[in-house]
């Protein structure tokens, strides 16, 4: 299967990309690694008329330590984040979740910015980022702004990034010495998560328990009160709204959320 026809614009800088976005408006889509966009275009679930290829913008690919944060360029490919020594040392959960996406070929193409902008509630990287905290830096005609990760993913495949903006960078706190855990439940190794739980420094994020990745706030509050891991994890599905589909029904997802949260917290505590 093939996408519908579109015009293709290759840009070499953020400024060029933003200019192209402004010119083509809502018919345009940014193409980075293309591993979220092209599959749905092939199935004709997305039919943009212009693709703006930002895959070759050198200024978007980097990993830097800045103060108490690690800044990662949106164009950085997932396999680079998985292997990067700085990310591994300063934000090991981010390195880990980058390495859990898809398969090696997918990670060779897919970018950090792409997975953030796609806002799939079952996605590994947003789940990890939501647990880590930090922010997503976007740029538009009005300049740059920073979106806290807690406000970034607003709905099923929807984000706070405006149509004339693009993701530039992700900033996460340096959590190198803290224990962390990531539990991804799939039937096959390279499937999307049926449910996943990420835990670091008392923060817990869940994949596929709502229209977006979500924080397990009841669990976090219980931990803050000094509850045991088991007690806190038993609250993990509170406030979530999991769907029922052919992979799992809502009741089982709730069970998994509690189980995986407990295991992720136990792993984090054991480090």
């Amino acid at each position: 299967m093939i996408p519908t026809a579109f015009d293709y614009v290759k840009v070499r800088s953020v400024d060029e990309a933003l200019a192209a976005l402004a010119e083509h408006g809502e018919d345009a889509k940014l193409l980075a690694g293309g591993h979220s966009l092209l599959p749905i275009m092939k199935l004709r679930l997305a039919i943009p008329t212009v693709l703006i290829d930002i895959g070759g913008i050198p200024e978007l690919s980097y990993v830097r330590v800045e103060g108490d944060e690690v800044a990662v360029g949106a164009g950085t490919r997932l396999f680079e984040i998985e292997r990067d020594e700085v990310v591994r040392a300063e934000a090991p959960l981010l390195s880990h979740v980058a390495g859990r996406v898809g398969d090696p070929q997918v990670r060779h193409r897919a970018t950090l910015g792409g997975t953030v902008a796609h806002s799939d509630p079952a996605s590994d990287v947003p789940t990890g980022l939501l647990a880590l905290g930090g922010s997503v830096v976007v740029q538009g005609p009005a300049g740059r702004r920073s979106i806290p990760v807690t406000a970034c993913w607003t709905g099923f495949f929807e984000t706070d990034v405006a149509e004339d903006e693009m993701v530039i960078e992700v900033r996460v706190p340096r959590t190198g010495s803290s224990g962390w855990g990531y539990e991804k439940f799939t039937r096959r190794e390279n499937d999307w998560a049926i449910v996943a739980a990420a835990a670091v420094e008392g923060r817990v994020a869940l994949a596929n328990m709502a229209g977006t990745v979500v924080r397990a706030t009841a669990t976090e509050e219980a931990l803050a009160r000094g509850a045991s891991v088991a007690e806190a994890a038993a609250l993990a599905d509170q406030g979530t709204s999991p769907s029922s589909d052919m992979h799992a029904d809502a009741e089982y997802r709730r069970h998994l959320a509690r189980l995986l949260t407990r295991r992720a917290l136990e792993t984090a505590a054991a480090a």
């Binding site: 293709y8 193409l31 293309g34 591993h35 092209l38 599959p39 092939k42 693709l51 090696p104 070929q105 997918v106 060779h108 193409r109």
Partner: peptide, 8 residues
């Protein structure tokens, strides 16, 4: 290594 069905 990449999947050439998902690269233009």
């Amino acid at each position: 290594s990449v999947k050439s069905c998902t690269v233009l």
